[in-house]
């Protein structure tokens, strides 16, 4: 079975530093790695392919992204290819998906394409679906389990509130794998050395048969929506005329006093007096 895995280099969260004043990221300190969902996808691919299968890794990114592809080669991927358009700002998921689709359509078509469900930096989670759209393949997102039988993939998909959905998908298909469903294997020394020595081929637009104009997707119109200010809620302040211990009790109970009745005792005239006084105090009489 031929499987292609799409990887993305994302900043290592432990190297992310935010300037407290400007809220800007300190880009000089960032180191890049493959995201957790991507490494899970790679491991699943290697497991599904087994010894006879063929796993190829793809990555859209600058030359530094070779490190991510080398990691895939070290773990056991048979080939790796980096896709890049050097002088174009590649930003939108659609552009990434188009490059990947173009690369997948050239050469031998894989039976299965695995992606991470969402990257750990932008995390829009759109690339797998867009990629399937460009390839005109079926896609399943948020996949937590995959078994392949014949020309059919049986997958489990994560729904809300812990629910799972089981689906059957005809191959070829694109699957977006959730982070954490598999842990990438420890590369062998031979694999690591092979990966270090491998030259990573780069495909640019010409090689993929694309024009810069193909990547000019209409800019998505985004409108900043800020949640409305929450309604102000009065903060309870204790009655300043009360003694300290009572005020403290009031603060602790946040002003909530338990409803309590009062049972009067004594001769009827006295009880009537107290009752009238009580009503007068509260302005009923």
């Amino acid at each position: 079975m031929r499987i292609a895995v799409c990887l993305k280099q994302v900043p290592d969260p432990t190297t992310v530093e935010v300037d407290p004043l400007t809220a800007a990221l300190d880009a000089r300190r960032l180191l890049y790695i493959a995201g957790p969902a991507d490494t899970a996808a790679l491991e699943v691919a290697l497991q599904l392919a087994g010894a006879e299968g063929h796993v190829s890794a793809l990555c859209v990114g600058p030359p530094a992204a070779d490190a991510v592809l080398r990691q895939a080669l070290a773990a056991g991927a048979a080939e790796a290819r980096r896709l890049w358009a050097p002088f174009l700002p590649l930003q939108s998921p659609a552009q990434t998906a188009l490059l990947l689709a173009a690369a997948l359509q050239r050469g031998e078509t894989p039976d299965l394409v695995l992606c991470g469900a969402r990257s750990s930096d932008h995390g829009s989670g759109q690339v797998p679906a867009l990629l399937a759209e460009f390839l005109d393949w079926p896609v399943v997102c948020d996949v937590t389990q995959i078994t392949v039988e014949g020309g059919l993939a049986r997958v489990q998909r994560r729904l809300d509130r812990g629910a799972r959905e089981e689906l059957e998908v005809p191959l070829p298909a694109a699957l977006a794998v959730e982070a954490g469903i598999a842990r990438l294997r420890h590369a062998s020394l031979t694999g690591l050395m092979r990966a270090e020595r491998a030259a990573i081929p780069v495909s640019e637009l010409d090689d993929l048969g694309l024009e810069p104009a193909d990547l000019a997707f209409p800019a998505p119109t985004a409108r900043m929506v800020t949640p409305p200010r929450p309604r102000t809620r009065p903060i309870f302040t204790p009655d300043s005329t009360r003694p300290a211990h009572e005020r403290i009790t009031q603060i602790i109970t946040a002003g909530v006093t338990r409803k309590s009745g009062k049972v009067l005792e004594g001769p009827p005239e006295q009880m009537a007096d107290v009752l009238v006084e009580f009503l007068r105090e509260r302005g009923f009489v």
Binding site: H186, A187, S188, L189, T190, L192
Partner: peptide, 9 residues
């Protein structure tokens, strides 16, 4: 010996 599979050099 490197702490990996096939780790002898």
């Amino acid at each position: 010996r490197v702490r990996r599979d096939e780790g002898d050099l």
